[in-house]
Design a binder for these strands. Sequence first.
DNA 1: CTAGAATTGTTTGCATCCAAACGATATGCT
DNA 2: AGCATATCGTTTGGATGCAAACAATTCTAG
Lengths: 171, 171
Amino acid sequence: MSTGFSSSDDELVGQAERDVQTRLGGADVDVVALAAVSNIFRVANKARYHFERTVLGPIELSFTAFTTLWVLWIWGEQEARNLAVEAGITKGTLTGVVTTLARRGLVVRKPHLTDKRLVLIEATPDGAILMAELFPLFNAEEAAITERLSNAEKQALADSLRTVLRTIESL
Amino acid sequence: MSTGFSSSDDELVGQAERDVQTRLGGADVDVVALAAVSNIFRVANKARYHFERTVLGPIELSFTAFTTLWVLWIWGEQEARNLAVEAGITKGTLTGVVTTLARRGLVVRKPHLTDKRLVLIEATPDGAILMAELFPLFNAEEAAITERLSNAEKQALADSLRTVLRTIESL
DNA sequence: CTAGAATTGTTTGCATCCAAACGATATGCT
DNA sequence: AGCATATCGTTTGGATGCAAACAATTCTAG
């Protein structure tokens, strides 16, 4: 039986939060913030793993590679520096991801016309075709994991997360 | 100027979601689910990076190593298989993380008394002291990044995330 | 009892992931 | 013009991270 951290049972999670207070002497713990933030990480971990196994697994694409290709598919050709920011990874990591995607013929690197420091990255036709097939499956899975939330709850969830995002950026 | 995916500006994010519909022919996209789920990943990424730079960076502890040590600190000695589940990583990854933590004297491996297949992992006194110093800083940062949400909103955020967690587990 | 099946932690191979150093290029200040 | 500074993508080194193979141990069916 679980000790509670990984469980989604409310009572066990609540017990976990009380255990933290006990360990810290019962005071000075923002339990609500702890619950909100730790659940963000828990869900992100689990959802990422779920997507990699269900939708991305058969096509042998990592979550990060999918995100990178998705950005190129939606907004077209990007400078590497921008692409790294949009995909939420560092430029060093992007180099490896783009190399992996290029090896599979899903993206291509192109030189910038005027600034030789820059590298432009673009999805190939094959990359676009793959995304056109893959994204509906991905989105259907997004709908599936949120199906127990009402539309208003999903909206509120997205809004609260956007607020947290803004707060982190201002810190 | 950003194309919008990494931005927390509502209007740009909204534009991103409309671009997806355009790319897909304008139908069959669950935009609300897309917004909710993609924001979970965005916030988790950004928050993790934020914690690693502010709280965990000076002590040279990765987010995963911190989580692992935190579980041991709150609930005590754990079998490796449980610890991996609680920390949200595979057992193979745990082997490396425990080795790293053990090298720094924060945890120890102990044999199980009756089942020789099992390995017990326990935080050392040094590990416990470190967590007692570190967790308040960590929790303060959790409070900081959620400070613009009301208590009710934080509660609702945690509740919705728990619902998503349960849904994924039932899929 | 005992051979096959199941379980556990480790190892291996490969792909991220970040920080920092690096070479190439571009900019800015004088 | 010219030299310090800044910016960009890549490389390097170390730590995750997963899947799959593995050896050791335990369980189980007959």
